[in-house]
Design a protein around this nucleic acid. Structure first.
Lengths: 213, 213
DNA sequence: TGTTTTTTGCACTAACTGGTTACATACTAT
DNA sequence: ATAGTATGTAACCAGTTAGTGCAAAAAACA
């Protein structure tokens, strides 16, 4: 028989609080976020927020940590090791772009964390482990491509990672000032597609030998 | 004879307030900035801040507008039109990187403005004029390079501008989380130099025909 | 000198903020 | 059943914030 829906559900309340916190932090930054707004949006009580997460700062840390683990997790699922190097690289560029596009909160959370000099991220060991695996993944692609002669030798995996992130991240995080400076709607479907193509081209020309563009 | 230093100097007080506001906004964002902190730092009275600039929001707008005009002004002084296309492009990449590096407030102000969906920048006509001139400047370089056969044809000036900004901006604005994710001190002199070289390489390979790298 | 204008100090407030207290209600193990 | 614990609510607190009112002080001007 069906169990009656629990009136009290700690896990569900926690989940709603985290989700609301993510939205609120992304919208207003750590400083601008309002604890009352979070608990209200989560249809929970402020008291519960403090009960489960300690304080505003700890809540932010939890949200941020989860956001990082989410993207690192999604990257691992791409199975880039089983793709031909050029294909793997293009897949990563596409994935990164689409992830930022579909999870705009991630970008804003990272911005906010950098405004605070990464003091929350510093404390997270899980992030460091996941990051290492991520960098290694890209390094392995570079290695394979170099061996097979389609990639130029000597490319630094960290610099490449930063560049792949940068060309997507900057476009999206600065889309509001960008729309004014460049007098263009940067979020139109056609504009987004054009940018993705440009980014793929940028990375391919950077990494591949000229004869393998 | 020397004019006695004025005890009352409205322009000087305004200047100090703007400078202090820039620092405070850059450090804490629009929401996190404290008006009392600004007036104190400027060694002026809070009353004067409101007298000269209206309110916190208007003050932010003034600071932001000036920051944009400053960089657009500096770019114009590069005289890129008088350089050979490849040289002009490399100069622009170097300049952009160094400007961000030496004026970190600019980046944080732009981040903050994008968190607020560019509602201040929208109101500034002067910014639009200066931006247009900037985009045209880069478009002209591309045109010249294309004509002389060293640049590939069909490169969009806006996409290129965004990419040049992105590869410097992202590295610097995310230097705190970056240091953790990549387990590297990104602000060491050698690291900065390495990044600049990587960025120049990225842009050159993107824009130049393979035989003119 | 006297009058006007600009600059300054500072107390004040009304709203808001993160965090807490006191209390109530549901669930669970014995 | 009941004692103990987990979950929930609302009112409240102390500190902080952007912004103001007002009058004195200082400079500019006549």
């Amino acid at each position: 028989m069906d169990k009656k829906v629990k009136v009290r559900d700690a896990d569900e309340t926690k989940r709603r609080l985290l989700q609301a916190a993510k939205a609120e932090f992304a919208k207003n930054g750590l400083g601008g976020a309002r604890v009352d707004e979070i608990s209200e949006r989560a249809k929970a009580n402020k008291r519960m927020l403090y009960h489960y997460f300690g304080n505003k700062d700890d809540l932010f840390q939890t949200v941020l940590e989860q956001a990082y683990l989410d993207i690192r997790n999604a990257e691992q699922k791409l199975q880039l090791d089983s793709l031909e190097p050029r294909q793997a690289l293009e897949t990563l560029v596409r994935f990164t772009w689409n992830y930022y596009l579909r999870n705009p909160e991630f970008i804003t959370l990272v911005n906010s964390e950098n405004l605070h000099r990464a003091r929350h991220l510093k404390k997270s060991e899980a992030i460091k482990v996941a990051s290492r695996r991520f960098v290694n993944m890209v390094a392995k692609i570079l290695e394979r491509g170099e061996m097979s002669g389609v990639f130029r030798p000597g490319i630094d995996a960290v610099q490449l990672n930063i560049t792949i992130a940068a060309i997507g991240y900057y476009y999206l995080t600065n889309r509001f000032t960008g729309a004014i400076v460049y007098e263009r709607d940067l979020m139109e479907a056609a504009a987004l597609e054009q940018r993705l193509q440009f980014n793929i081209e940028t990375i391919m020309r950077l990494v591949c030998r000229p004869e393998h563009f």
